[in-house]
Design a binder for these strands. Structure first.
Lengths: 338, 338
DNA sequence: TTGTAAGCGTTATCAC
DNA sequence: GTGATAACGCTTACAA
């Protein structure tokens, strides 16, 4: 029975095994092989009877090896973020790291605090889905040699890999699909683009590509949560283009949610007025006749982010690219069927 | 400009401020008041020019004060869990603690690993939404004096506060509502109840209360994800009770999702056949005519969990109750309107 | 009010 | 192969 009051230490294991601290340390570190089989056995035995487990705090103290990865999420209640977090966590565990997840609720101040904190815990790497532009602090990490990966959003003047969706491609795929389905006028709906390079990029590409295709188009920036203004903008757009087949393209999951509500408030029939969203959500299949989406490969994105980190933590020969973009996959449903 | 290569240490601050390590330590600890204003000023000055921040690893090592709370989540992709996690994180931050979130994907083995890990990081408290029955390990924490709070699910033989919904009340409220709306036969749908005390409790109370009310009732345990068997069970129930007004009560969010899919596959009209779910979800308002739910006060639950922990970490006069149950709130929508 | 010095549990650097 | 021993950065008696 090993329900001691105190965690046992390396010294106690060493004594019980008739060995030195060093050997026990080696056993639990990278150098187990250097120990003779008999010593290994004794240590294993002693450790198990004592229920010994190395104290990570002490480990982190000496060599700076906290075995911790920090992750900053802009909005943890966003299903997309959750999916990515899930991927990141899995990958971390595979590499023997633990993940400290911090949620910033899109608040730059909280973001700053959390970054300080993660630095205080000596995280060995950082996965950041930025809320603001914490350039200074990220530079601090970089200059200390802590690798950083940016998720989904870039930060000015911070050189780090950026992992995320190929926004250019995503918008193109969306418009292509809408055109094929015969829609002639498209309204793009986005959350406020100021804070997010991804939102800006999608928005910009939308203008560009819609122009190229000769589509009638407009933009709706979501503001007030009650959606009063949005409702007006949407119906104005539909009226102005009533001679065309109209569709709405949503820039992310939140936009899709908001617009679906608007459709219901306005009594619009999905499909008659097309609806398509970037980001796949649980319920997109459930709102009849189903909402067409562009799904992001969230697990792959998370996994890739961690891989970038690992390559930089234990530097190999190959240099990594500075941007990794994934293609979305089209999930076709009734909302884009006229 | 403070972009040094290495984090500066307490010693450097002390030197620059012309003070001792102890004073600097006091300044950043609980004893700032004991220092003379002039000393405080000098230290503040020095610390800020050096960009000093105490190393939490070192702090944790000496006194065991890691300022870390560990949280184990059974399924991080479940919106309910996310909401709770959000609440827990906020509360932790308020108390000056950071949160390490570990997801177990409902896998007892992962759960064990994560518990070992959290213990290795010297977490000062634990919020656990158990996947299995990690009695042994939880006891280890308890015997080391680390307080534990159980979320939503109990674990046999582990004495710890349990924070969650008042399941008894929730089921009663649901049945009451369904009765008032004129439904006479109710099918209860649940995920496998083996692992979860909450699921068991709701299921049990359903039988009991449905019986008391003289309702016709049945049970559907979700198994295969494709839902083939479930579809059969549901339609059988409806056929068997076709002379009554039928409704389905879903035991949690996943069940609601699954059942909503079934309704669509079977072409059932919401309301005609009643549908009600425990757990509120983003999209419940969006599937016409809206799905009636019982919402859990997730923020309150998360906050309470952390408060329990804090009371035990810094023991006060009052003893805490061993169970804290919250009442759900009814959100009435069209799916329970005949 | 302030400082000195002894750890905390581990890893890294040398020796043997 | 194995083992002393000195850090790591901080807290905390104990002095002054």
């Amino acid at each position: 029975m090993s329900s001691l009051l105190r965690r046992s230490t390396i010294l106690e294991v060493a004594r019980l095994a008739g060995a030195s601290k060093t050997s026990v340390s080696r056993y639990f570190g990278e150098e187990r092989d250097r120990l003779s089989p008999s010593l290994q056995a004794r240590i294993a035995q002693a450790a198990s009877t004592l229920g010994y487990q190395p104290n990570q705090m002490a480990r982190g103290l000496k060599g700076g090896h906290s075995k911790l990865i920090g992750m900053l999420v802009a909005d943890i209640r966003n299903p997309f973020s959750v999916a990515i977090t899930h991927g990141v966590e899995q990958a971390c565990r595979q590499y023997g790291y633990s993940l400290v997840v911090c949620n910033t609720d899109n608040d730059p101040e909280q973001e700053r605090q959390h970054l300080d904190l993660l630095s205080a815990y000596q995280v060995e790497g950082l996965v950041v889905n930025p809320s603001g532009s914490p350039e200074r602090q990220l530079h601090t990490f970089i200059s200390q040699g802590t690798p950083i990966v940016l998720l989904d959003r870039e930060v000015d003047h911070v050189e780090a890999e950026v992992v995320g969706l190929d926004n250019h491609l995503a918008v193109d795929m969306a418009l292509e699909h809408l055109c094929v389905q015969g829609y002639q006028a498209v309204l793009y709906v986005s959350e406020a683009p100021e804070q997010s390079s991804t939102r800006q990029r999608r928005l910009f590409r939308f203008h560009q590509a819609a122009e190229q295709r000769g589509l009638h188009h407009g933009t709706l920036l979501l503001a007030a949560p009650d959606g009063s203004a949005s409702q007006q903008t949407l119906s104005d757009f539909l009226v102005a283009h009533r001679q065309y087949a109209c569709a709405v393209l949503c820039g992310n999951g939140n936009a899709t949610l908001a617009v679906t509500r608007l459709f219901q408030q306005l009594g619009l029939a999905l499909g008659k007025v097309g609806l398509m969203g970037i980001d796949e959500l649980d319920w997109c299949a459930l709102v009849p006749p189903g909402i067409t989406t562009l799904a992001q490969p969230t697990d792959a994105i998370g996994k890739t982010a961690v891989e970038c980190l690992m390559h930089r933590i234990a530097p190999r020969t190959s240099t990594m690219p500075t941007t990794v973009s994934f293609a979305p996959s089209l999930i076709e449903r009734g909302s884009t069927q006229r």
